[in-house]
Amino acid sequence: MLYSPFITRPLTVDRIMRRVLYALLPGISLYVWYFGPAILMSIALAVTAALATEALMLKLRNRPVRPFLADYSALLTGVLIALSIPPLAPWWLPVVGTAFAIAVAKHLYGGLGSNPFNPAMIGYAVLIISFPQEMTQWLSPQGMGLSVLSYGDQLRYVFSGVLPAGMQLDALTMSTPLDTMKTQLHLGMTVSDIRDLPIYGRLAGKGSEMVAAGFALGGLYLLIARIIPWQLPLAFLGTLFALSGLFHLVDPAHYAPPLFHWFSGAAMIGAFFILTDPVTSPTTNKGRIVFGFGAGLLTFLIRAYGGFPDGVAFATILMNMCVPLIDAWTQPRIFGKKKGGER
């Protein structure tokens, strides 16, 4: 048990951001464990691009460079983009995505605090729309009996695009569990048959389900440390669970079960690290529930019926757009004023 009084340092932007970064560590470690170290290279590239773009934009806007660079927010954007693209992607992919995110989605709107959209998700959306082919080269998890690239070969491929002799990119990569689910359902397989495919593990994709669990663990730390509000992840994951559960109950052959949705794609990292971005999410508690609900609903709809396998990014962007409206609607009434009165 802890007893007050405490004298704590106030939570400044950089301290919050640093904790959020720590909370990503379990997920990233599991990522490396299951898929090899290529992801670390992507993170390094994206972070470098993020800091460089941030410095350049600050300079162009005649703002002090140092304090803003030190607030870790650009760094977090870089890490989130790296985590949302395939680790074997060519080196320029994380660089272009991050540069766009920082320069256009963040600074053209006025910098940290003024950006309506989550920069990382804009970066991801730009990449998936512009380079769909590169964005599908996901690594198969290690130890699946398929050929595996050594660490050195992974790095060499990222920079030169050359694979060791006799290796096919096809044998190393696979489509994501969500993508496979969508394609195979389309071709007439049932959910249970699809989940017998070798790329699936206990809950969702082999390996990727554990990475998602790692992000969930980090997310729980953020919740307990009160760095993120509980309403957002709860409303988002709850809606996703309820909707997918309902559809799965009615038609189990054509709709994946709720836990599959939770541990696939960007659901976990989205719930705890992306939707919770304080700049682009509502400020009221009621608003946060609406926001999380909307994001969960859209994510499910896009996953089930949309043209893209995962929907977290687009759901986030669409809900980001609604934040000013949600905030206005859910603003607590000032005591003594009539509802709908002049503010």
Binding site: V96, V104, V126, I129, S130, F131, P132
Partner: peptide, 13 residues
């Protein structure tokens, strides 16, 4: 090729 520029969002940007 940078598809974003060709697709409708590129026009707005």
């Amino acid at each position: 090729g940078f598809l974003l520029a060709i697709l409708p969002p590129g026009a707005f940007i």
